[in-house]
Design a protein around this nucleic acid. Structure first.
Lengths: 127, 127
DNA sequence: ACGCTGTCTTGACGTCTGTCGAATCAGACA
DNA sequence: TGTCTGATTCGACAGACGTCAAGACAGCGT
């Protein structure tokens, strides 16, 4: 984890900043890496990757915790913990409506991560 | 880390398999998540994200460890450890040529990760 | 007001991770 | 052969992570 915690907690990378040219096009500077790495890290757990997918692909763009939890062989607190991790990485938003809490994906940051990873169709060896 | 180690060590996801529809389009199944999550996890450290970028954006598509190491305030063994992590996640390949070891990105897996994260321009709430 | 249900927080546990120094391995060159 | 340089492996340590049980909190219904 390279020591420091980084600010996180809802990184400012939620704005519509175009942000980052592809990782393979220009060297990612340390500051950018420090901001983006936590997002990748959050996706680096199978459970969270599935949670993220379930949320992002949900019918109305949002998913209830009550639907998420029973999809895994894990306790409620554990799922809650993973959701918190996704929240702190800026990947999802939570909203309580009455009894239930709904999670919603943040497409912007997903787009940024995808852009960072994107490779021009034939850029394997560009020279 | 969700307990089990998974096979890793060079996941078979290096083939040209189209692999995965976007995460926001269909629920990522557990098996897919188990295979892909380690790749995201490997990118989930600022140092490795920079290493990956330096390798992928290198002049001839490859970077020498001797150029990578001095770019960080970290010891050789530590950089070597991170490179091993990237290697085991299937993100890079290593080749020794004489005295030096060169690392090269695997564009296919990067493309797969990018595809998984990709979002159709206006799919925020598709209904 | 009371209890019920759904969700989150807290505290604890074992494991994994990032880092280093020391030792080891792999080639190059005398 | 011996030695030098570059890279990896080994062993150790502090800190972070994933998980759970127990408790706390928030709304709803009675």
């Amino acid at each position: 984890m390279s020591k420091q915690r980084a600010p996180l907690a809802v990184i400012d990378l939620n704005a519509d900043t175009p942000c980052c040219p592809p990782l393979a096009q220009r060297r990612v500077p340390a500051e950018t890496a420090a901001v983006l790495a936590p997002a990748f890290k959050a996706l680096g757990d199978p459970v969270r990757l599935q949670l993220m997918s379930m949320i992002a692909s949900a019918e109305d763009g949002e998913a209830c915790v009550c639907d998420l939890t029973p999809a895994f062989d894990l306790t409620g607190p554990t799922i809650s913990h993973h959701l918190k991790t996704l929240r702190e990485a800026g990947l999802v938003d939570a909203e309580r409506r009455g009894t239930w809490v709904y999670y919603r994906a943040r497409p912007q940051i997903l787009r940024q991560l995808a852009a960072l990873l994107s490779i021009e169709p034939a850029a394997t060896a560009k020279a």
